[in-house]
Amino acid sequence: MNFTTPVNITKSMHCVDFSSEIITIGSCFAVNMGAQLDYFKFKNTTNPFGIIFNPVSIEKLIVRSINQKKFTEEDVFFQNERFHCYEVHSDLSSTNQQELLNSLNTSLEFTYQKIKTATHILITYGTSWVYQEKNSGAVVSNCHKMPQSHFDKHLLSVASIEAAIQNTVDAIRKVNPNCSFVFTLSPVRHIKDGFVENQRSKAHLITALQNLLSDHLLDQAGYFPAYEIVMDELRDYRFYGDDLLHPSSMAIEYIWQRFRASSISETAWSTLDEVEAIQKSLLHKPFNSLAESHQKFQSKLQEKISKLQERYPFMKF
Rank of each mutant, 00 (worst) to 15 (best):
Y227D: 12
P225H: 05
S263T: 07
F287I: 14
I255H: 07
Q279K: 12
L218M: 11
L234K: 10
A277K: 15
R238E: 14
Y254E: 00
T207I: 13
A277H: 15
D242W: 14
A261F: 11
S262G: 05
L218S: 07
E274Q: 12
D273E: 14
M250A: 09
H216S: 06
K280Y: 14
K202D: 15
F287E: 08
H284I: 07
Q279P: 04
H204S: 08
I252W: 00
D232I: 09
M250V: 12
Y227R: 11
I252M: 09
D273G: 04
P247A: 12
W256R: 03
A226V: 02
G241L: 06
I278L: 05
Q210W: 07
H216Q: 09
Y223Q: 12
L245D: 15
S248E: 08
G222N: 14
G222H: 15
H204L: 06
Q220D: 00
E266H: 15
W269N: 10
K280D: 07
H284K: 04
D243G: 04
L218V: 09
Y227A: 13
E228H: 05
H204K: 07
D242L: 13
R235C: 12
T267G: 06
E253K: 10
K280I: 15
R238A: 08
K280A: 06
A203E: 12
V230W: 01
V275S: 02
T267I: 13
A251E: 10
H284Q: 07
Q279I: 12
A251M: 04
V275T: 03
L218K: 08
W256F: 15
S249L: 04
Q210H: 11
H216D: 01
A251F: 03
P247N: 06
S265I: 06
Q257H: 14
M231E: 14
K202R: 05
K280V: 15
I278H: 02
E266D: 01
V275K: 01
S214Q: 14
D243T: 06
S214P: 05
A261W: 10
T207M: 10
H204C: 10
L244S: 12
D273A: 10
W256A: 08
T267Y: 03
Q279E: 09
L218D: 08
L217I: 08
A221I: 05
N211D: 00
E233T: 03
E276S: 02
F224G: 01
I278F: 04
L272W: 04
D232K: 02
D219I: 12
S265V: 03
G241V: 04
G222L: 14
S270V: 10
H284G: 02
F224P: 02
S270A: 13
W256P: 08
Q279W: 00
A261V: 03
L282F: 13
